[in-house]
């Protein structure tokens, strides 16, 4: 396994000046575009990018405006991982060296419709880095619930009212589902902790075979937050323990942050329009679920 210590660190000071995702039409303050932009700066020029239907493809390629300044292709909604597998196989068969293939897919494109192809890609250990930018709903189509939408979220398909408090299921445990494939490298990250994200992309870049990063990426439009707080809110999510930073490597889980105390969940939720309606009881349900999860992670991973 690649040791992070051996890889030259990429940071704001030394990263390439080149911008590979530029002039796109994402909403102002889009967290997903921070994730895509930073990851591509780590991966560099010799990268093939594949994106399924979703925000990043919709805002990136509107003929004749081509916002990817490297090779990129839009895939079918369920076919991002498999098309990327094909790209990697084609590049290998054509004898191309030092090439990386990366996928940027949203939460719906990853945990729901694209999951079968992703599972196959990891099973075959194809040389692809799959990055899921998770903004916790189908934002491209206008905020509908996905398998990664958390409990209590108000979306256009899980309206909050007298009878139902918005989304009534918890987020799928995507990271552990991926790790259960015995993948070479998987990690969770947040754009609220950008250096941690850069390090993880860098590690995946230097790992041969299938790798996976689940990065929490805010959506001011869908979350009902001011555009300037996109980074802050993604950091808050980690600090209150609803999002955790972890890695899976050599068959072992590792918690990157294990705070003694969490920041208040309620503060994080109440900053966002999508959670405004939640009662104290609803919030307690979110906290209980968080605590159950952390108790298990701490018991099993530490």
């Amino acid at each position: 396994m690649t040791n992070l210590v051996d890889i030259p660190k990429v940071n704001a000071k030394n990263m390439t000046e080149k911008e590979f995702f530029y002039g796109h039409k994402a909403c102002a303050g889009c967290g997903g575009s921070v994730a895509v932009r930073l990851a591509l700066k780590v991966l560099g020029e010799r990268t093939y990018t594949a994106l399924p239907a979703g925000c990043m493809s919709a805002v990136g390629f509107i003929y004749p405006q081509m916002a990817f300044n490297t090779n990129a292709v839009i895939t079918t909604f369920p076919g991002a991982a498999s098309m990327a597998s094909g790209i990697a196989a084609g590049a290998k068969a054509l004898g191309q060296k030092d090439v990386k293939t990366v996928v940027f897919a949203g939460d719906g494109g990853t945990a729901d419709i694209g999951f079968q192809a992703l599972s196959g890609m990891i099973d075959r250990n194809d040389d692809v880095l799959y990055i899921c930018y998770d903004n916790e709903a189908y934002m491209n189509t206008g905020i509908q619930k996905s398998g990664l939408t958390p409990y209590g979220t108000k979306t256009t398909t899980t309206p909050a009212g007298k009878n139902i408090p918005g989304t009534v299921t918890h987020k799928k445990n995507l990271f552990e589902i991926i790790a259960a494939h015995d993948i070479a490298y998987a990690a969770t990250a947040s754009i609220g902790y950008p250096q941690d994200f850069l390090n993880k992309v860098n590690k995946a870049k230097h790992t041969k075979g299938a790798t996976f990063i689940h990065v929490y990426a805010s959506c001011p439009t869908g979350w009902g937050t001011p555009t300037e707080t996109s980074i802050e809110i993604a950091k808050d999510a980690v600090d209150c323990g609803l999002i955790f930073l972890a890695e899976f490597e050599d068959g072992e889980y590792k918690l990157n942050r294990n705070p003694k105390e969490f920041a208040p969940v309620k503060d994080y939720l109440k900053k966002q329009g999508r959670f405004k309606h939640m009662t104290d009881e609803d919030i307690q349900c979110v906290i209980d679920n968080r605590d159950r999860k952390w108790a298990r992670m701490r018991k099993q991973w530490l």
Binding site: F20, Y22, G23, K25, A28, Y63, P64, Q65, M66, A67, F68, N69, T70, N71, A72
Partner: peptide, 16 residues
């Protein structure tokens, strides 16, 4: 087919 030069920008985003 739908293929074009990477990083080709006929429009700016200043108006946003």
């Amino acid at each position: 087919g739908p293929q074009y030069k990477a990083g080709y920008l006929p429009e700016t985003n200043a108006g946003w």
